[in-house]
Design a protein around this nucleic acid. Sequence first.
DNA 1: CCAAAAGTGTTGTGGGTACACCCATGA
DNA 2: TCATGGGTGTACCCACAACACTTTTGG
Lengths: 232, 232
Amino acid sequence: MPKFVSEFPIFSVTVDLVVLTIRDGVFSVLVIRRGEKPYAGRLALPGGFTQEREDIEDAAYRELKEEAGIGKGDVHLEQLQTFGAPRRDPRSRVVSVAWLALGADLPDPVAGSDAAAAEFRPVDEVLGSASPLAFDHADILSVGVERARSKLEYTGAAANYCPPEFTVGELRSVYEAVWGVELDPANFHRKVTRAEGFLSETGENTTRGGGRPAKLFRGSPRARLNPPILRD
Amino acid sequence: MPKFVSEFPIFSVTVDLVVLTIRDGVFSVLVIRRGEKPYAGRLALPGGFTQEREDIEDAAYRELKEEAGIGKGDVHLEQLQTFGAPRRDPRSRVVSVAWLALGADLPDPVAGSDAAAAEFRPVDEVLGSASPLAFDHADILSVGVERARSKLEYTGAAANYCPPEFTVGELRSVYEAVWGVELDPANFHRKVTRAEGFLSETGENTTRGGGRPAKLFRGSPRARLNPPILRD
DNA sequence: CCAAAAGTGTTGTGGGTACACCCATGA
DNA sequence: TCATGGGTGTACCCACAACACTTTTGG
């Protein structure tokens, strides 16, 4: 076992991941079942230790790969918040940098060894669960979900939950799943197609889903949506 | 010198502070002149090491007191972002949690010994300076300033730059200083006085500033401003 | 009196909501 | 033919920008 020595107080820095996607129309989060103490058997967010010479963002991507088989191009990743209460991990002083990852219908994580215990669960079920998440992960998840919801108001983040090309109806269903509301299809259509720089037509059509063929669009996940779509 | 030993990679965790206020109508940030290497003589954001059993938020408040003589009640403090590139501090592996502190016209920090080198400078001057900030502090400041600006759109954060009771005109001058724009006094007045739960009248009047006496209001810095005041 | 800032009125414009209606496909 | 979702039109309402105008103080 390696030994590290320091003249300053010793911290470990971990990354924890709030991985959100939409599975069968349900807003869902990736959780793992813990095998070890503390909190053995409880659900938790995926995550792990940052390495000695590793950028914290790289650590987040690495854990995403190791624990869920998700690659860099599969998700949008952004920093969420850092949690550093002295006793948040009973073993030692651990400061955790939480990250938010948004992706289109992600594969069932069965690949790696670590990933065996990982699965997507509905956000509402996990937050309202009788068996709460380990550590302060419920707090982290709450922050992540609120951030994900508010990003839909002012940005093109909804496109992160869609395949590269999608219809306006598919985009609307993202809003409906994430916010848990119903939106008027006609007004939503006008709103997003008129917002400058938000959607770009591919010229293709699709008929998946039945009904009249819909135009396919590409999104700009980083675009600012002006005027915003407010939740109230 | 104390020695700490660990079996995991060793990190130090610091806090860095973006302290913003408005001085004589100018949007300003608190900076210190570094006395030691590295970056000796350069300007930097105030900050310091988190202690062994200290919550990171408490560390931010402590540094605020030590380096600028600013107490807990004097500012609104919120977490900004964490900076953890491997080489951001040439001495060792340091992860810094940056915080945003917003306050009404804050005292010139001359109190403590550490605070001797601290002073407020115009944000534009510091960001555009020929002598850039130490470490990655220019990045941190940019993130802080952008957050501060965008918070004015959707929240009552502007009240943080005002005394407990203030006039609508004073509030408007906050927006003008932070955004660097001019706003129509009449429309601004209607907008903020009509927003539900945003301002509450004290019943008092004031004549500071000349002209017709203005009503005094109290703000709700945490209130959500709906509809928002957009910058464009 | 004038200057200065507070606050109100008014009008045109643009976006939102609600909902009627038509379009293009599969079954 | 019908059902299904895509997409457009329209009417009402509210918010906002622009700017004229009145109010209340100090000098």
